[in-house]
Design a protein around this nucleic acid. Structure first.
Lengths: 189, 189
DNA sequence: AATTTTTCATAGCGATCGATACGAAACCTG
DNA sequence: CAGGTTTCGTATCGATCGCTATGAAAAATT
């Protein structure tokens, strides 16, 4: 999982996986069928072990604003964990791919779209509860938040620290409707 | 350039380049030395022809807020041009790479860092002119804006339309300090 | 026009890709 | 302990990678 996370699907060779797992090629293929299946297993494992913060944040019994804050702050941490590759596997795994790996790229795209849909769902709930203005476009704002998280993933990959990502998240939160004054990116935090 | 933009550096094979350019292998190597040099030529061409909006926006004699607005709106257009691959080559070109292509990944990272630095420079100028509060962290806000643009690049790659990207940009602008009320993501736009 | 020089496309180089055939070692059964 | 079966590591498969040597066609010079 770490190798796919770091180098992406195609750039991770079986030789690297073999060495990392300490397995012989037939053992790998007996256990995982082929490289594509192994990658999909890594995806589900990543989803379960590394980004639980997202589901936690979106399902917590807190205000919509607090839920979004937890979502972005969780991303800041998850994307810059020490000892882990920077960013999000769903972004780094196969943003660009050869025609042969189009299926993998599409699957990762589906994961990203799923995240955005989950955000939109939470926003719609918040709007129904009166946390958000009625005039707000839930889908548009979800696309903004998903975009910010994707951007954080790239910033993390470029070496941004958890503090820098937190400031970025805090800045992004200032775009939330109903904010009287900007709170993010202050040098006094 | 389009091939590298679409598939990334490593996933673009010489066979694809050969067919697209209508050249034989020796012609390619006579003209561009090797694949890496060809990619770097594509990078500089991309920089000159596709993302002039950024330099235009940052150097225009307008308010800081207007400059940032032009920057994000320019990105919305540039990342979703019809007939062009979605997103930004500097992001898609080699976000994840094999160890052999680390030099390419580092070069793209340098381009991204350069963009962020250019934004920070413009923000610092704006702060000196009184456009931005003194307490604002220029670097932190630049990281936010660069992150939003990177996120827009991924959203574009996932099929976001220019309108959706404009709404995203408008939403991101609401995080600008000194904004009384949120203007973005309204369903009435 | 004959000959030399240059240009250039084909064919193939070594290396590596993902994936597997095959022989040896280990293990259970008689 | 012998025989039969399973397990498993090595060695290698065909395909493709980036790249280049070589022979034929074209151009330039006598």
């Amino acid at each position: 999982m770490h190798l796919f996370w770091e180098h992406g699907y195609e750039a991770t060779s079986l030789a690297m996986l073999r060495e990392a797992m300490g397995l012989t090629p037939p053992q790998i293929y007996n256990a995982f069928t082929d490289k594509e299946t192994l990658f999909r297993k890594a995806l589900t494992r990543y989803h379960q072990t590394e980004i639980g913060f997202a589901l936690d944040a979106l399902s917590a019994p807190v205000s919509t604003r607090e839920a979004i804050r937890r979502l972005l702050m969780g991303a800041a941490e998850a994307y810059s964990r020490p000892g882990k590759p920077g960013g999000c596997l769903f972004v780094s795994g196969a943003l660009a791919a050869s025609p042969q790996a189009q299926a993998i790229a599409d699957e990762l795209k589906a994961y990203r779209k799923g995240s955005e849909a989950a955000i939109a769902e939470r926003l719609a709930k918040g709007q129904a509860m009166g946390d958000l203005p009625e005039g707000l476009s839930v889908d548009g704002f979800a696309k903004y938040l998903a975009g910010v998280m994707n951007g954080m993933s790239i910033q993390a990959r470029d070496g941004a620290s958890v503090e820098e990502l937190r400031i970025l998240a805090q800045t992004a939160l200032a775009a939330l409707p109903g904010q009287g004054q900007n709170q993010g990116a202050s040098s006094k935090e």
